[in-house]
Amino acid sequence: MHVLNRVTLTKLVTCSVLSIALLSACKSTKSEHQQYTELQRSFSYEAYSGVSDTSVDTIAYGYKTLQKERLKQVGEIEPTLTHAMMSYILSMGLSNDFAIAESDLALAKAIDIRGKYLAYSAQSLAFYNKGWRKMAKQKADFIRTDPLFKTVSQSYPKEQLISYLIIGSVAVRDGDLATVQNMFYVIGEQIEKPWLPSLAKAITVTLNGSMLESLVMLKDISTDPSLNAYEQAKISELIGIAGSKLSDKNKRQQITRITDDFFLDRIKDNSVSLYRDLITNLQKYTDQVL
């Protein structure tokens, strides 16, 4: 794996902080698209993208070369997939700007309809997490309604659960309950967590509907006898937030943050070793560049 030296890392992080501050100062008067264009032209975006373009691809090709026999069963690990995975990981409170950069790289690497569907999903998710809801919804509407993508969403190898997670997470934010149910049903079935689609539906209701209704749904999920101690604790944490005196906006933000991490954690712990190792390596990579 390509590793940045400490000097480059310090410059990248410093420039990132300055760029974020400058973008934040003027975002109130500029459209989402203008902010996006400025982000793409910023030094931190270009520097990060230049590094990731090589480093994350190296990780992907390393798995593709070394794991040929296992890849016959679970599908190839391509740059589009790894950049989309990186985008998801970075969106979990690490860097929304770099998450967008990764989603852009995922789209640039996409070579077929399935790759483009995943990349557009990663872009939509990154835009939602950045707060660019108009652009995020445009992407979500595009992949949901364009005839080209009609049958793509469930065409990924069943073991590539991160693809289902990214697509499902966009649907959660977009209020698309049908896609939420389909994506998280596959995940729940593969990792033997039958309550997962119900949790995803509850979070969808949290973000797009009634907080009271989602609280009732979460309490119902908490009674599932198949939950282990860790899962029970996480569901209880979500119930505590949903029933707290926080504003609905703060409740939604905290619940989204917790569930994004929780969903990835469940996938990581219960996936085939190939994908578990890949997620771990990508998480280690973020420690080097942030």
Rank of each mutant, 00 (worst) to 15 (best):
H2F: 10
V3A: 11
R6W: 15
T8C: 12
L9T: 10
C15D: 15
L18C: 06
I20R: 14
L22R: 10
S24I: 05
H33C: 07
Q35Y: 08
Y36S: 08
L39S: 05
Q40G: 08
F43D: 12
E46N: 15
S49L: 05
V51D: 10
T54Y: 15
S55F: 09
I59V: 11
A60S: 04
A60C: 05
L66K: 10
K68R: 14
E69W: 01
T82D: 05
M85P: 03
S91T: 12
D104F: 05
L105E: 00
L107E: 12
L107I: 08
L107K: 08
I111V: 13
D112N: 04
A126M: 00
V152N: 12
V152Q: 08
S155T: 10
I162M: 12
L165T: 09
I167P: 02
S169C: 06
S169G: 00
D176E: 07
D176N: 11
V180E: 03
Q181Y: 07
M183N: 10
Q190H: 03
I191K: 00
P197Y: 02
T204P: 03
N208T: 05
G209D: 09
S210Q: 06
L215C: 04
L218I: 08
K219C: 00
K219Y: 04
K219F: 01
A229S: 12
Y230C: 02
Q232A: 10
K234G: 06
L238V: 10
S247P: 05
S247N: 01
D248E: 13
D248I: 14
I255Q: 06
L264M: 07
D265W: 14
R266G: 07
K268I: 00
L274P: 06
Y275T: 00
L282Q: 05
K284I: 10
Q288P: 08
L290D: 11
